[in-house]
Design a protein around this nucleic acid. Structure first.
Ligand SMILES: [Mn+2]
Ligand SMILES: [Mn+2]
Ligand SMILES: [Zn+2]
Ligand SMILES: [Zn+2]
Lengths: 154, 154
DNA sequence: ATCTTATTGACAATGATTTCCATCTTCATT
DNA sequence: AATGAAGATGGAAATCATTGTCAATAAGAT
């Protein structure tokens, strides 16, 4: 189990309370992998990592758990165009916080990007306001991706 | 063939010149469907539409052609989270121009959205400048999506 | 009209994600 | 701590969008 004697219960522990979700070994193991990794792993990559510690946990459970965590808002699911979904912790001590992604169309590299969030916040604020008025649309989330060529691929 | 006596050659005609691409019946038929439709059809939906006029054109060719048109920059390919790619004409007389999408997480409805492009342009300009300097990353395209609930789903 | 070669269609193959269902855990209650 | 109901799991099979194969076809230059 992903407990640390020196840190107390993992930060996500409370997230399961009140949602009716059971705190199982699989779910903790998967969250533990996601909280330690800095990349954007696919379901299978997460499965392989989890498998090192808990060989009994199956790929099906990984898929189910990831879906659950997305619904619970604990993780984000992305499509970077490589034919498989990729996942990332949405918040927590280890996460880099609100950010977006640069996707290299040459090599597929993903770069986390946090700059110019101020202008983004402003754009988002106006957009939210405008959309709720014009379309009666309630924004809950937004996705920004930049596609192009990384230094090595230019 | 998707020719109109009163309009002259379709606007995309010249787009194939110089690229080494042949202007085939399939490609014209698919572009014709995309230029008349206002939604964001999947490959199969495009195939079914094309099939009404040209029953001999196969789904494989539709997939191949869409890939070609994406590479040529004539159309955009999107992932709205429903498990299949969706396509849209990138420009031309019938297109609504540069826009982004609202995706309803309740019913899957897609709303084209063109407001507040000014702020977006400004954000994009600063972002491009910052990224090319900080990460040596050359932006060629960007993707903005807002997720939330439409009027009916709230 | 002929020729070169890009393009196509039918079918099989791929591969990520889901479905199924019998079995196992979690955890509230005793 | 033991019990039991409901939720969660794993393994295999199924699904299904997309891609690969390859012989046949058609675009467009000559
Ligand atoms: Mn990231
Ligand atoms: Mn659109
Ligand atoms: Zn690259
Ligand atoms: Zn809706």
């Amino acid at each position: 189990m992903p407990w640390r004697d020196d840190t107390g219960p993992p930060w996500w522990h409370g997230k399961f309370r009140g949602c009716g979700y059971r705190l199982t070994v699989s779910r903790q193991a998967i969250l533990d992998v996601l909280s330690k990794i800095t990349e954007h792993p696919s379901a299978e990559e997460i499965y392989l990592e989890v498998h090192k510690v808990y060989p009994a946990i199956g790929l099906t459970t990984v898929y189910r758990t990831l879906e659950l965590l997305v619904q619970a808002g604990l993780i984000f699911k992305f499509d970077f165009g490589d034919g498989r979904a990729r996942y990332e912790l949405s918040e927590g001590p280890k996460s880099i916080g609100h950010h977006h992604h640069l996707v290299c169309i040459g090599c597929g590299r993903i770069i986390d990007y946090t700059d110019f969030i101020d202008e983004e916040i402003e754009l988002l604020r106006k957009t939210k306001k405008g959309l709720s008025k014009k379309y009666n649309f309630k924004i809950t989330n937004h996705l920004i991706q930049f596609h192009g060529l990384c230094g090595k691929c230019q």
